[in-house]
Amino acid sequence: MTLGLTINALAVTAASGRMLLDVPKLHLAPGSCLGVRGPSGAGKSTFLFSLAGLIENASGAVTWGETNLLQMPAGARAAFRRRSVGMVFQDFLLFEELSASANAALSGAYSDPAHQKAIESKAEEVLTRLGISHGARTVDSFSGGERQRVAIARALASDPAVILADEPTASLDRKTADALIDDLLALVRDTGKTLVAVSHDPAVYTRMDRVIEIVDGRIATDEAAR
């Protein structure tokens, strides 16, 4: 399944009243890859978290397919993320004491038993494809690149339609970052998933289908990647 994104009048305001994000309109085709760049503090992560339905005080509409996240209660938004969204974070956010396999299949712990096997199997498949062959080892001994691969496997294990990545290469050296983004894009494009990746790294956003630049909470530029 693929999902497209439609944003209408998305606004996020801080408790102080300061505007954090103001996106009047944005449409993203199903299966496309969007890079989000911009200076620090510009609102890139707030934009990404809004797409995941994690921002409580957002207004407007963030619609994935037919589902407007901002009209749903928190529990339903969590269910949507569980079903349709995989997330990758800058500093991996793994359970260091668990194995690569257990981390990758984390969502199996709260899925219904019918899906648990599928999640475990998919996690192993992605780990193998990403070159993580020692799945039983705890990840505290892994390198940064290996950890981020495990995090990507975790994001893909439940076969979501959307992948949201927040600075996925920021903690990696150049060579590892390039290899990782190659792998991520290959996995996403092979399965027709929609990818939104926030990054300072030109090697990431220039390889997307489209790049937006956010400055002071607003989309300053919106263009196809070169």
Binding site: G75, A78, R82, M87, L106, A109, R154
Partner: peptide, 9 residues
């Protein structure tokens, strides 16, 4: 993280 990934409360 669990909640961001969509784990039920």
């Amino acid at each position: 993280l669990l909640r961001a990934l969509g784990a039920p409360s």
